[in-house]
Design a protein around this nucleic acid. Structure first.
Lengths: 188, 188
DNA sequence: ATATTTATAGACTAATTAGTCTATAACCAA
DNA sequence: TTGGTTATAGACTAATTAGTCTATAAATAT
């Protein structure tokens, strides 16, 4: 892990624990085991670091999804796989998932261009449009379907992290939540 | 509007625009038209103000919902009314809705006791449990139903605020999103 | 080998800011 | 009225912190 990655990993941990505000750059540098000057050599400003971290996590998640989308499955199978994968990714990367929410609910979001944000959903849109066209999904705007899909993932995540569940129990809940989502989305 | 309310109203506006971090207490006081000392007289610390504002907004929303829940309607009617009201409240109080997300995605949340948080959903739980028992709603844990409900509201809000919609168009979308939610929630 | 660019270090500073302190003023109770 | 409590004001400070600056070291190119 190079210095840039060390800095980002430490920043993620501290931002999630103490917030953007509660995390001085000096602390990030110290805990990452680099000097203050090194941090500012790689990231022009603190804001730069905050945004770079966001973009890296988003890219990582988008790449995961893209891998699923490109698989040669039925649209309905893709749909399910993406849901299951999204929930599991969130559960297995809580810091990253939390950081995304934190960033999305902060003025930092304005620093990210609309194009960059769109880039991150670009994989989605195509196959959902196809699902709508083929009348596998409800006849609703793609944007609405994606938004409600994400809302469902978010809601389920909140529930699963509100208490401790055994792995099998958790898997069962995820599958049931998927059936509920499918009731929302399926054409008839 | 007394000084406390002035301070909270100004704090809400500034926190939403610039974040907790980006908003000095001195600026809040100045724009609220009160002296620095007055702010700290009413709120022991900045954190105090942040939390008090959160609790007030949550209470306000919970009271709204309680009014709907207490009405002598069928459970299914209540369910719909609560959804429609929640979405409209969010749309008509964007600052407040955004502030709640911002706070929920910040370390400040840890300052709010579990009981206080539960207090805010207490109205919900009863009639949803009833709906489950009477087999009007899916046979799932109340917590899961509430979480997915909130996720649906959140997703729809995201969609509706992602672009400009005419009032009638917006109302139509809300109703269609409600039908989608109902497909998720209804027993059969 | 030498020159140039890139990466790292850490001391330093200028600015910001949460919260304090002291002084009044408004209100209220006896 | 008088005495106490509550509310308001605004100057002040001690601490914090983002970012700079200078000096090297490592890597890369010529």
């Amino acid at each position: 892990m190079n210095k840039q990655e060390q800095i980002q990993a430490t920043a993620l941990r501290l931002f999630v624990a103490d917030g953007f505000h509660g995390t001085p750059t000096a602390k990030i540098a110290a805990e990452a085991g680099v000097a203050n000057g090194t941090l500012f050599y790689h990231y022009k400003t603190k804001e730069d670091l905050v945004v770079a971290l966001y973009n890296r996590i988003k890219d990582e998640h988008a790449d995961n999804l893209q891998a699923i989308i490109s698989r040669d499955d039925f649209i309905t199978t893709k749909f399910k796989n993406i849901f299951i994968h999204s929930v599991n990714w969130a559960l297995n990367n809580r810091d990253k998932f939390y950081y995304i929410q934190q960033f999305n609910s902060s003025p930092h979001l304005a620093q990210v261009s609309a194009e960059t944000l769109e880039q991150h959903t670009i994989g989605y849109a195509g196959f959902i449009a196809e699902g709508v066209k083929k009348k596998l999904l409800k006849q609703q705007p793609v944007g609405l379907i994606i938004a409600i899909f994400n809302g469902h993932v978010y809601g389920l995540y909140q529930y699963l992290t509100s208490a401790k569940f055994e792995p099998e129990e958790q898997e069962k809940i995820i599958n049931e939540a998927y059936e509920m989502l499918w009731d929302t989305m399926k054409y008839m």
